[in-house]
């Protein structure tokens, strides 16, 4: 068991190391560097370009720069932004907190809702309730997030006037101020999240209902309610832990578009600003940061699944 955990941990660390190398090497291999990207046309002037490269320390060998970057990252020193000339850690700090706030709110609403609806859909297989939920889920999964977010603003903020459409608070606002502004972003993210988890739980419940031990319990005359609670739920909800982990990782990392639509001051919008400013070091650091969050959350989900599901432990231990 401990060996299994250590192995999983080690493989996560190796993946993270590779991510940092890949992000770094991509910039080295492709034409251009942080200075040419940032300066744009001004990079044609050799003196400006040389000064910038000198300033950013680009003349030192790549391997040294990578070690500096990666070691700094581990110690919480994320480097310096090109455009704002400020430590990236300062830029990222509040925004990352805001992204976490949004992700947690969406998870707290979305995960229980998804589990309940998924079980309901599974139990009502092919009946109207299931068909409504399943097709709604496919719809929510398919339409682009900026389309659904825009529709939400159009209907609930502009049409009905229930809440404000875009977030107007600054990045370092107190959490409560932030929360009162996040109704629509939360709804937008919850919809997608519920759709994914619901579909998995539904399939899982249907599979479990057809398993031998459920048939056995039925034949023994166990009441259906008890079958659902004691046999179906534990067995069908366990597989969803990993997907829930993936979903949370997605919420913490991939909601760039949704944050932009709602003008939410999170890490996703910061990355868009960074690309607009052609601030390569900032983009690289955000990419590495979000990849580590993704890897970390997946690791946690795997370990949790391992702790809760004894059957996984015998697998190639």
């Amino acid at each position: 068991m401990i060996r299994l955990v250590l192995r999983r941990l080690g493989s996560s660390l190796v993946t993270l190391l590779i991510v940092s190398v890949v992000i770094f090497v991509a910039v080295e291999v492709l034409p251009g560097d942080a200075c040419t990207a940032y300066l744009g046309r001004a990079a044609k002037d050799p003196t400006i370009l040389a000064a910038c490269r000198e300033n950013r320390g680009l003349s030192t060998p790549a391997i040294v720069r990578w070690v500096d970057w990666a070691a700094g990252f581990v110690q919480g020193d994320l480097g310096v932004s090109m455009k704002r000339n400020k430590p990236i850690a300062d830029l990222v700090g509040w925004r990352f907190r805001n992204t976490v706030v949004l992700a947690l709110t969406a998870s707290l609403v979305g995960i229980p809702l998804a589990l309940v609806l998924g079980v309901m859909a599974g139990l009502a297989r092919d009946r109207p309730l299931d068909i409504a939920l399943s097709s709604g889920a496919i719809f929510a999964m398919t339409i682009p997030d900026f389309v659904s977010a825009t529709v939400l603003i159009l209907v609930f903020a502009i049409g009905l006037g229930w809440t404000n459409g875009v977030v107007t608070v600054s990045a370092n606002a107190p959490i409560l101020d932030l929360m009162s502004n996040t109704v629509l972003p939360t709804v937008a993210l919850t919809l997608v999240m519920v759709a994914h988890i619901l579909r998995l739980v539904r399939t899982s419940v249907i599979d479990t209902l057809q398993s031998d031990f459920v048939t056995m319990a039925r034949l023994k005359g166990v009441p259906f309610r008890r079958i659902v609670w004691r046999h179906v739920l534990p067995n069908s909800l366990l597989p969803s832990i990993n997907l829930i982990g993936l979903t949370i990782a997605w919420l913490l990392g991939g909601v760039v578009v949704t944050e932009t639509v709602f003008n939410y001051p999170g890490i996703g919008r910061l990355s868009v600003d960074a690309v607009s400013d052609r601030d390569l070091p900032l983009v690289q650091t955000i990419a590495l940061l979000l990849a580590s969050v993704y890897i970390g959350v997946n690791l946690l989900a795997d370990l949790l699944a391992l702790a809760l599901n004894p059957r996984l432990r015998t697998y190639r231990a």
């Binding site: 190796v14 993946t15 993270l16 590779i18 991510v19 890949v22 992000i23 991509a26 910039v27 492709l30 034409p31 251009g32 990207a37 997605w250 990392g253 991939g254 760039v256 578009v257 990355s271 868009v272 960074a274 690309v275 052609r278 601030d279 390569l280 983009v283 690289q284 955000i286 990419a287 979000l290 990849a291 993704y294 890897i295 997946n298």
Partner: peptide, 22 residues
């Protein structure tokens, strides 16, 4: 391993990283 590492970067950030460089 490299493919998995690349896929652990959110896809939109992979795209944005390339856009910044290229």
């Amino acid at each position: 391993r490299v493919v998995d590492a690349l896929l652990s970067i959110p896809w939109i950030l992979t795209l944005l990283l390339f856009v910044t460089i290229l």
